[in-house]
């Protein structure tokens, strides 16, 4: 499967799961909303140009927004993590995109340590921005803080679960292709 087809399928699945399963499970607590769809942005190939990253983040957020009827909310958060993503990757594993032996960020490609830090930082950024925008017209500062921490925690649990349950069979990059 080419990267293009793979990522289109992924986007469809992530949005579907987020809109029809995670947003609909009876909430554990009013602070805890499970978010997973932004993993799409985290899983994009290393070689994605930064502009394309931004555009894809925008698309991913907007698509979910139209399902949850909050246009702009998830879009803003997704664009933010799509913009920050390349910096985090460079920080954590300082090499050129072409030098990676795997195509996309995964525990296998980066190692569990750096990968979970990568996921944690982006998850935290995403939730902070998202909750901040919600908090602007509703709620107290305390609930804002608790909500950021709680949603980040539940998202990290989900991400680790997904990584263990669905290990991506990533081919080595070869120069024959």
């Amino acid at each position: 499967m080419s990267d293009l087809v793979r990522n289109i399928l992924r986007l469809a699945i992530f949005i579907f799961v987020q809109a029809f399963i995670l947003d609909k499970v009876p909430n554990l607590h009013r602070f805890v909303v499970p978010y997973l769809y932004f993993l799409f942005v985290l899983w994009l190939p290393f070689t994605t140009p930064r502009l394309t990253l931004l555009a894809l983040g925008f698309l991913c957020g907007l698509l979910l927004d139209y399902f949850t009827m909050t246009p702009g909310l998830h879009t803003a958060a997704c664009v933010l993590i799509a913009y920050v993503r390349p910096f985090i990757i460079t920080l954590l594993s300082p090499k050129e995109a072409q030098e990676f032996t795997f195509r996309e960020p995964s525990p296998k490609a980066m190692g569990w340590g750096p990968y979970s830090i990568y996921a944690l930082i982006l998850t935290f950024l995403h939730h902070t921005w998202l909750t901040f925008l919600q908090w602007l017209d509703f709620g107290t500062f305390m609930s804002f803080l608790i909500k950021v921490v709680a949603t980040t925690a539940i998202s990290m649990v989900l991400i680790v679960t997904v990584e263990i349950l669905f290990p991506r069979k990533l081919k080595f990059r070869t120069n024959t292709a």
Binding site: L54, G61, L62, P71, G72, T75, A76, V79, L133
Partner: peptide
């Protein structure tokens, strides 16, 4: 990035 972010916030707040 700034343009997309501004656009997102704009549709969010007008909505």
């Amino acid at each position: 990035f700034l343009a997309l972010q501004a656009f997102a916030l704009w549709i969010l707040f007008t909505y």
